[in-house]
Nucleic acid binder design. Structure first.
Length: 252
DNA sequence: GCGACAG
DNA sequence: ATCTTGTCGC
């Protein structure tokens, strides 16, 4: 899978904001022509110690609830975390992992917001536009918008409204009864209803949609194998404590 | 000046 | 997100 637009190597703050304002005009917020059958869940883990991003993509066939493909990418981290400019931090890793996909999924599910963003250009909007692929954002916390009341049952939905215009920017979606909702917003080539529908179709037994949840697991596994943390010092020895011998009696 | 602030 | 120690519940 190849991007249709290039992302610059080095980006400063003002340039990042300018890129967002230029690209957001190109977003298409209509639903995909046909309902997605395969989606790629995406996630990134960080090593603070080595300034490295560990990205994973899990391609998922919705109808069969089955993994089709898993890819990884490891890239250096070259942009700070700034709320509102989050995509510039993770996009190099996500582009790298998507370029490794053999298949072209019908849609992407990102770990972050789409247009529920102060400039209407969150990670899912940015990434969807770079590849011109349908993309939805699923975030665990709010960045932008006013939350309307949401019922407690799985499948219930409430709007997330722009603070200035009261126009919808996304939705709160209850993916599990009695569990905190997720924040769903279209990124590119999605509208609100199709985005919510896709997230619910990908929802399994957990709060996060299954493709993203599995991508997260992959990311954690990558971090653990490539950047294992070892204790700074070995735990001290305890001279008075005697290890139980295998097969020894419990006491004398 | 104060609070809010995706990952 | 990462770091870090413990606690609660199936």
């Amino acid at each position: 899978m190849q991007p249709v637009r290039r992302h610059p190597w080095r980006v400063g703050y003002e340039q990042a904001v300018a890129i967002q304002q230029r690209l957001r005009a190109q977003l298409r917020l209509e639903p995909p022509a046909r309902p997605p059958e395969t989606v790629a869940g995406l996630d990134v883990a960080y090593s603070r110690r080595t300034h490295t991003l560990y990205a994973a993509a899990v391609v998922w066939r919705i109808a069969e609830a089955r993994v089709l493909e898993v890819r990884h990418a490891i890239v250096p981290c070259r942009f700070p975390y700034i709320p509102g400019l989050f995509s510039f931090r993770e996009i190099p890793a996500l582009v790298a992992v998507l370029e490794r996909l053999a298949s072209r999924p019908d849609a992407l599910v990102c770990d972050g917001h789409g247009i529920a963003h102060p400039r209407r250009f969150g990670l899912a909007a940015h990434l969807g536009l770079l590849f011109d692929v349908p993309c939805v954002g699923v975030a665990k916390k709010r960045l932008w918008g006013i939350e309307l009341a949401l019922g407690p049952e799985r499948g219930e939905v409430a709007p997330l409204l722009d603070p200035h215009t009261a126009a919808p920017v996304g939705a709160l979606v209850r993916t599990r009864s009695g569990v905190k909702p997720v924040f769903v917003s279209p990124g590119h080539r999605f509208d609100f209803d199709a985005a919510v529908e896709l997230v619910l179709r990908c929802a399994g037994r957990f709060r996060l949609p299954e493709p993203t949840r599995r991508a997260h697991q992959e990311t954690v596994r990558l971090l653990r194998t490539h950047d294992p943390k070892r204790p700074a010092v070995r735990e001290r020895r305890y001279p008075d404590y005697v290890e139980r011998q295998p097969g020894a009696a419990a006491n004398a």
